[in-house]
Amino acid sequence: MLIKADHLRKVYKMGTIKVEALKEASFQISEGEFVAIIGPSGSGKSTLMHILGCLDQPTTGKYLLDEHDVSRASDDQLAEIRNKKIGFVFQQFNLLPKATILQNVCVPLIYSGIRGRRRQQKLAERALQMVGLGDRMNHRPNEISGGQKQRVAIARALINNPSLILADEPTGNLDSKTGKEIINIFQQLNNEGHTIIMVTHDQEIANQARRVIQLRDGLIQRDEVIS
């Protein structure tokens, strides 16, 4: 079992007011699944994604990733888990604007301690070719289209060969045609065996996954396999 979420609960303190962003979430995800987490804004899906992505930790409950309990890990341990096991794809692309595309894809390698610029670049080139951007490597993010940016982000997510790809509204900033292309890449990656969790508020996009977990007011409302 890749992911085991057990009674996850997250409470934010905003001044004196406590906000229960995630009330209770328990589920399991196996390797090779393609899961869409769906829900309106305020449903707790972002909070859940942050916890699953090891960017944040649950207030109570247990989160096992690859059999490791990460709900009590330190900041630096979390960073290492993010680096080695999780590949992020964001709605805002989150590329470094001043770095070239090749450099952007290399960033996770820097922190995983892979030595040698040549070696890093070779890995990055291969990842970029996989998403069909082999010819744009020395451009900067502002010189390419949104769809291309998201492909760069996917290449970056893949470079450390993670156990889990976590996509947060990956088509949110794209037109529907480009969005579909990106979803196709995810489906293709899933077919190659990658585990993908995609957070979205768009039902149509969610339907492209194989399983949908629907959140509402911090609770799981629906969890079903759709294809």
Binding site: G53, L55, D75, D76, A79, E80, R82, N83, K84, F88, N94, L95, L96, V107, P108, I110, Y111, S112, R156, N160
Partner: peptide, 16 residues
Amino acid sequence: TREIGIRKALGAKRKH
């Protein structure tokens, strides 16, 4: 700040 966030998400530890 955003760049720091991106780097952290991609695995940068505090020392980095």
